[in-house]
Design a protein around this nucleic acid. Structure first.
Length: 670
RNA sequence: GGCAAGGUAGCUCAGUUGGUCAGAGCACACGGUUCAUACCCGUGAUGUCGAGGGUUCGACUCCCUCCCUUGCUACCA
């Protein structure tokens, strides 16, 4: 058995002069997903990310704040890491270019190439803008004025070091042509080849310290630091032990994949590749350049209020749905449009309706009819073998897609199985089988669906590492995954007992989309407007009507001014603890539940508009808080004596207010 | 400007070497169903396949022209 080389994947190291945004997050999430997939395949994986901390902008930013560059980057690195934690990024190493291990590698690389003659010094003449501290080319300053600040530039000579990149132009062209899978996607590969059709200039790789001190000193000239390319790109090898621990280095190198945004493809495809040529190191197996998320309405961001920071949706709707959306919606490699509306549409269609509801429509029936037990008998239904075959085909296609970083294809294919299972339920109509007491057929249907859920949970796991285990738990399995190569159809054990399901992907209110479309201020919550945790009242309209209320209304500043009530006024509202004794749907109303609740000795009936979010079973026995002295009302002909308190959840659902520990039924809440 | 890719149903896109290739998903309409998260299943409509011309028995699929969109065009101290 030959040990497979570990999967080594990298993100770019992000420049530590500003905070990160969706672009950085997306690259990193993609690497994370790829890493999780490789681990799911049973392959060892090493996932590197990090920070690029030298250079003029960092130096300037630090100076502006009156701190040292390192203090500045220390703070930003903390923010980087906080974001990765928030996105649950499973990186193995975080390299900082200010670390000694990195600086040492850079010096080693420079020294080696200098000795080899691939780095040389030369003196050039250019146009320098002193205030901006930068050079311009002859072409850029036809008027001899700085394009940035429009002040005069002066002609200046400066000595610098150059990397003999041109020397490796032809070898690189040959290499790319000989390795079709090296640069992906295909169109990017063509762009690089197009780029290389022009003569390649050598690369200036230094800055005199008098102009830029914040950098890694060039080993053969203490007057200079190296500039960006050799500093930053070298991280991919310095982080895995180059040059001190070559055994470790060779274990991981060449990288399986450098994942980059399309904007820095050339840097990697040309600069980095030629650097590796010069060093005599093999090139990475793959360079994947993905596209951008284009924010819808971004161009009008000032006037239109509906531009969202994509990362805000993580808190609003959950990390896993967010991740799912990113990789299902975008053709990986191409650009895609990001909008909250498309997120909600995708979420409802794929997650809530198709996958989530697959559990929700099956497990309650299984519990009711078969004590929750999946029973495996002889397969006699015609669809069973077909679905098994589909599952196998889906898995094979899924793996093929994932190996090629075609995330959207992998997910799309997985949903073929989910759709088939939904259709299967329709075809076999288990509710009819139950009525007709065809237990063997019924068991076969349940087992097949349960097995399908298990199967899909495995496939979806790299994308949704938190919710995928929930699917396993709901069907009664431990929340652990088989390595994908071992995943086969038919492994759901006979006798597995499912759990009481609760929606994993609660449906999001569509009114929210309407309000988004209209550019209404669904995101803003002007004070005075009723945004606060809307109590779900006796009125069926209450709660739902405000379903579009923001998930986390900003805790409006200090409590001053109008709208405040005193204690006595508050005490006019009599809140009390109650225990739900019975619950049932109100006939002819979708959202209403008729409840009887016990308050100490007293029992009373009330109506709550929460049927879309709670089943009667979920409520019975639950301690709730009710408004006791609300004027009785008749709703759909049912008497209601009080109302239950509930609050909106980030996903647009509803959470009933309960007590932290059992309280005395009937006792006043204050 | 140069190079490259693309313009196919309201939206996002599939469409191998020319002959059921006019499709999928979403959205929409209608029907079915009731287990389920107003869900699922089925059916349907809409398209001059960017425009014009050409090759061919026949072109979304090949050739030419035009229009439009997008990407790349590093580094140059």
């Amino acid at each position: 058995m030959t040990a497979q080389k570990p999967f080594y994947i990298t993100t770019p190291i992000y420049y530590a002069n500003a905070e990160l945004h969706i672009g950085h997050a997306f690259t990193t999430l993609a690497a994370d997903t790829a890493t999780r997939y490789q681990r799911a395949m049973g392959r060892e994986a090493w996932f590197l990310t990090g920070s690029d901390e030298h250079g003029q902008k960092v130096e300037q930013a630090a100076r502006a704040k009156g701190i040292t560059p390192l203090q500045h980057t220390d703070a930003l690195v903390e923010k980087f890491k906080a974001l990765w934690q928030r996105l649950d990024i499973c990186y193995d190493d975080f390299i900082r270019t200010t670390e000694e291990r990195h600086k040492k590698a850079v010096r080693h690389v420079l020294g080696q190439l200098y000795a080899k003659g691939d780095i040389y010094s030369d003196t050039y003449t250019g146009w320098y803008c002193t205030p901006c501290e930068r050079f311009w080319t002859e072409k850029e300053v036809p008027e001899k004025l700085c394009p940035d600040c429009h002040r005069p530039v002066e002609e200046l000579q400066e000595k610098n070091y150059f990397f003999r990149m041109s020397k490796y132009q032809q070898p690189l062209i040959d290499y790319i042509k000989a390795h079709p899978g090296f640069i992906r996607p295909e169109n990017r590969r063509n762009e690089v080849l197009g780029f290389l059709a022009q003569p390649l200039q050598d690369l200036c790789i230094s800055r005199p310290k008098k102009r830029l001190a914040w950098g890694i000193e060039i080993p053969f000239d203490p007057e200079y630091v190296t500039y960006v390319w050799f500093d930053a790109l070298t991280n991919y090898i310095s982080a895995i032990g180059y040059p001190d621990d070559m055994a470790r280095f060779h274990r991981y190198w060449p990288a399986s994949c450098h994942l980059v945004g399309k904007d820095i493809l050339t840097t990697h495809a040309v600069y980095w590749s030629t650097m590796l040529f010069a060093l005599g190191l093999p090139l990475p197996e793959m360079l994947f350049a993905h596209g951008w998320w284009v924010l819808s309405g971004g161009k009008m961001s000032k006037s239109v209020g509906n531009v969202v920071n994509p990362l805000d949706l993580v808190e609003k709707y959950g990390l896993d749905p967010f991740r799912f959306f990113l990789f299902r919606e975008m053709v990986f490699g191409a650009d895609a449009v990001f909008s909250e509306e498309s997120f909600i549409l995708r979420y409802n269609a794929d997650l809530a309706n198709d996958f989530g509801n697959l559990c929700q429509r099956t497990l309650p029936m299984l519990l009711k009819r078969r004590q929750g037990k999946f029973r495996r008998g002889p397969a006699t239904l015609p669809q069973t073998a077909e679905i098994a075959a589909l599952a196998r085909a889906v898995k094979a296609d899924y793996i093929a897609a994932m190996e090629g970083f075609l995330f959207h294809e992998a997910l799309k294919r997985t949903w073929d199985l989910i759709s088939r299972l939904n259709k299967f339920i329709d075809e076999t109509a288990p509710w009819k089988l139950a009525k007709e007491e065809k237990w063997a057929d019924l068991d076969e249907v349940f087992w097949t669906v349960g097995e399908g859920i298990r199967f899909c949970a495995h496939l979806v796991q790299p994308f949704m590492p938190h919710t995928a285990p929930k699917f396993l738990e709901q069907i009664g399995l431990p929340a652990t995954f088989l390595p994908l190569p071992q995943l086969e159809w038919g492994q759901l054990p006979d006798g597995t007992v499912c759990r009481e399901p609760s929606p994993i992907f609660p449906r999001l209110d569509t009114p929210r989309i309407e309000s988004l479309k209209k550019g209404e201020k669904a995101e803003k919550s002007p004070k005075g407007e009723k945004t606060a945790p809307a109590s779900t009242g006796v009125s069926p309209a209450a709660g739902q009507a405000t379903g579009g209320a923001p998930a986390a209304p900003p805790a409006a500043g200090g409590a001053t001014g109008e709208g405040l009530i005193d204690y006595d006024e508050f005490m006019k509202t009599h809140l009390a603890v109650a225990v739900v004794e019975t619950a049932e749907k109100v006939a002819g109303a979708d959202k209403l539940l008729r409840l009887t609740v016990r308050l100490g000795e007293e029992t009373r009936q009330l109506v709550a508009g929460i049927a879309l979010h709670y089943t009667p079973e979920q409520l019975i026995g639950k301690q709730v808080v009710i408004v006791k002295n609300l004027k009785p009302a008749r709703i759909r002909g049912v008497e209601s004596h009080g109302m239950i308190l509930a609050a909106g959840t980030p996903d647009g659902g509803l959470a009933v207010v309960t007590t932290d520990r059992p309280a005395t039924p009937g006792i006043r809440v204050k």
